[in-house]
Design a protein around this nucleic acid. Structure first.
Length: 465
RNA sequence: GGCGGCGUAGCCAAGCGGUUAAGGCGAGGGACUGCAAAUCCCUUAUUCCCCGGUUCGAAUCCGGGCGCCGCCUCCA
């Protein structure tokens, strides 16, 4: 499997499972100060799919996604609400976990929270001070960027050129404007932990280094996140981790493209966002996943209700095929040679696409192609009972992507079933009596209620939309 | 200004030196129907932002434009 790594600026080979059975993967998680918006969900969905695909190919993936529960934004939110940072973090952690479920994300192996690792962060900072890569200034501790020669290698930035733009906030005691805070002395009313430098809290970029080291060891196989984290967040992580160990922090760096709205990045600060939970409520889990997976993960993707609706319809189309296959596939009827071969080729395409930089749009096209092959086979007079094999293949391949695992038909209650059945029966009588006016009225009324009727040679069937 | 990316049919989107230029949505025609819906069949890019160049051969490589976006400050 090849993956395009930001550090190499090109594809990097992930050794096959026989050589490298266990993969350590770290994905930057949310800061829990609000519900996540749908843009935040992109890496969660894409890298969840990657993780599950790797597992389906025989890797054992240890998947870590942190929860940042110490942060300025949490403190600010608590102030606004008149509650405490702990309460805000606790509440939005719960909401976040619920959102992950709604997005169909498999729970990570570990979901470490920054608050639980403050002691370890202090140890790391002490070690950096001891090595001369960090210095103490009035209760703050800063990382000395100039002490780490590789600084800028991930983002392609030259420290000498960064200098012009860098600035020092009032109250900071940096020796060099490029330096970043590892530990911040507590201001009145802020959460604080005791430390060798006095009460305070860890800075922005330390938690991922500490938690990934604790759970995955010194070198991660894959480190992932949004491309807005490349600088300074991931650059600063590399500086800390590699200054300390002298070893490579992560082998492969994956950065997903941003979700945009009319071409502009979706961001809370721009006010152009939608909460993930609201989008899921509107279009459903699989439409959201399909929406993301229908665009290569590294490219920007534009959000709109039309785009989500289109994804919903694409998903629905596959489900219709699965439903048709399920109805007919009571027995095992083999596919004719040539159709079986076509499916086989599409399966190879599916894996080929995913192994080449996790090209999910190409993989989805292969899945659609399978459904199309099945439809064409039946249209040409083939035995629809043979469709079962294709349906099973689609479901199996799509499982790691979190797609097409649901019931083919939406669930319905027994009473609803009977009531609609009664109306359908009545309409049938009216049609027999050629009272089409009233029959159509029933059909239209039901349609407006989301019940769609289809008259087939075997009688009228209906689906809920 | 520096670094990175993008520009393929009406729309979304694969493609990474030779393919009939995937797939989805939409649209048009046909079959089916009392009319529909759904479904199926067919059609929908002689061409890949523009201009040069390399090559037997380029959407794909190189040079130069034009347009859009991200990062350079917290940000998925």
């Amino acid at each position: 499997m090849r993956l395009w790594s930001t550090l190499e600026r090109g594809p990097v080979q992930l050794p096959p499972p026989e050589q490298k059975g266990r993969v350590g993967m770290y994905v930057c998680g949310p800061t829990v100060y609000d519900y996540i918006h749908i843009g935040n969900a992109r890496p969660f969905i894409v890298f969840d799919a990657l993780r599950r695909y790797l597992e389906s190919r025989g890797y054992e993936v240890v998947y870590v996604q942190n929860i940042t529960d110490i942060d300025d934004k949490i403190i600010n939110r608590a102030r606004e609400e008149g509650s405490s940072p702990e309460e805000v973090a606790e509440r939005f952690t719960r909401e976040y976990l619920e959102d992950l479920r709604a997005l169909g994300v498999t729970p990570p192996t570990y979901q470490p929270r920054a608050r639980a690792y403050v002691d370890k962060m202090i140890e790391l900072i002490e070690a950096l001070v001891a090595k001369g890569n960090a210095y103490v200034a009035d209760g703050d501790v800063y990382f000395s960027v100039r002490s780490f020669p590789g600084y800028g290698k991930l983002s392609g930035k030259d420290p000498d050129e960064l200098l012009s733009g860098a600035r020092v906030e009032p109250g900071e005691r940096k020796r060099d404007p490029l330096d970043f805070a590892l530990w911040k002395a507590a201001k009145p009313g802020e959460p604080k932990w005791p430390s060798p430098w006095g009460p305070g809290r860890p800075g922005w970029h330390t938690e991922c280094v500490v938690m990934s080291r604790e759970l995955l060891g010194e070198t991660l196989d894959i480190h992932a996140g949004g491309n807005d984290l490349i600088f300074p967040h991931h650059e600063n992580e590399i500086a800390q981790a590699e200054a300390l160990t002298g070893m490579s922090f992560a082998r492969i760096w994956l950065h997903n493209g941003m979700l945009t709205v009319r071409g502009e990045k979706m961001a809370k600060s721009l006010g152009n966002f939608a909460y993930a939970r609201d989008v899921v409520r509107l279009f459903g889990t699989e439409a959201v996943r399909y929406f993301y997976l229908s665009r290569h993960w590294r490219k920007p993707l534009d959000f709109s209700h039309e785009a989500l609706e289109e994804a919903r319809k694409a998903v629905e189309g596959v489900y219709r095929f699965l439903a048709e296959a399920d109805l007919a596939a009571a027995e095992d009827v083999p596919l004719p040679e040539e159709v079986a071969t076509e499916i086989k080729l599409l399966e190879e395409k599916f894996h080929g696409e995913l192994e080449d930089d996790f090209n999910t749009p190409g993989a989805l096209a292969a899945l659609q192609g399978m459904a199309n092959a099945g439809k064409r086979f039946v249209a040409a007079g083939g035995d629809r009972r043979a469709l079962g094999a294709i349906a099973e293949k689609i479901r199996t391949l799509a499982a790691p992507l979190g797609l097409f695992q649901g019931e083919a038909a939406p669930s319905r209650s027994g009473r609803t079933e009977e009531l609609i059945g009664l109306l359908v029966e009545l309409r049938g009588e009216l049609r027999k009596g050629r009272n089409f006016e009233l029959a159509d009225k029933i059909r239209d009324k039901l349609a407006s209620l989301g019940v769609e009727l289809r008259d087939t040679p075997q009688g009228t069937v209906w689906i809920l939309r």
